[in-house]
Design a protein around this nucleic acid. Structure first.
Lengths: 132, 132
DNA sequence: CACCTGTTTTGACGTCGGTCGAAGCAGAGG
DNA sequence: CCTCTGCTTCGACCGACGTCAAAACAGGTG
């Protein structure tokens, strides 16, 4: 699931460029929620920064004071969010990040482009704009 | 709280560059968790992309089929995560994003730098590296 | 096959979090 | 001062989530 974030989010339209649709925000929030846990975020960075671009579960478990099943659970959440992929080779399972997804997320978060509405000077003297 | 993410995270060290410390991941996860909800993510983009760079709560409430208190709650979460700031002017409260924070988050997510450990070619023939 | 290690799944438990209605607070305007 | 509107806080409800122990599964090795 969430194999291609770009297909849903429309690839790389910055948050500050135009409002996200309900569906876009739902898909994006799923990914951010996966990163919204200290353990998972650290797992992600451990995997991403590990030599060779991949890390064995056995390497990851020792870093935390958590049970094996708990680590496995967090890895599953990251996997289902599309942030990492796991591959079994013999006895061990190796995880690696999906750089495209990180790249897309990074692009979405980039602040207002020069010609975005938010970059226009606010008309402080005018009454607040209300659509109704 | 979380007035300056850079002070805690060390500013802009990409996730894939080196592993996050427990404290860094805790602080970062707090921000990502705030973005890990569809409503909040949409609120954030509504505010960020709104003309003048700010939006009144009254503008935001109408977009969702949610009660006022619920919207207010989500805005509070975003505010306490340091993602937005609120200012009362007369009857209305205006929110605007903190672009620095978005910028820092975007920088943290940028994938592996060319000379990061993860970018080194994996030695597929070698036995898995285990610290112990 | 039996057994051992590494990893995932299952089931349960306690806490956290999104939601609402009701009540409270802040300004504007009679 | 009273009241009306915009927004926030409070209290409660219920589903979602992080955690663990136990059990199941996968591969290697005798």
């Amino acid at each position: 699931m969430l194999a291609d974030l770009a297909a849903v989010v429309g690839c790389c339209e910055p948050l500050a460029r135009e409002p996200l649709s309900a569906q876009q925000s739902t898909e994006l929030a799923r990914v951010f929620k996966a990163m919204g846990d200290p353990v998972r975020l650290r797992l992600l960075s451990l995997i991403a920064s590990h030599a060779g671009g991949e890390a064995c579960v056995c390497d990851l478990t020792d870093v935390f004071d958590l049970s094996g099943p708990t680590i496995s659970h967090h890895l599953k959440v990251l996997r289902e969010a599309g942030l990492i992929t796991g591959e079994r080779r013999g006895t061990w399972v190796y995880y690696r990040v999906r750089p495209e997804l990180l790249d897309q997320l990074s692009a979405v978060l980039v602040p207002a482009a020069p010609d975005s509405p938010a970059a226009m000077p606010a008309d402080r003297d005018a009454l607040p704009v209300v659509d109704a």
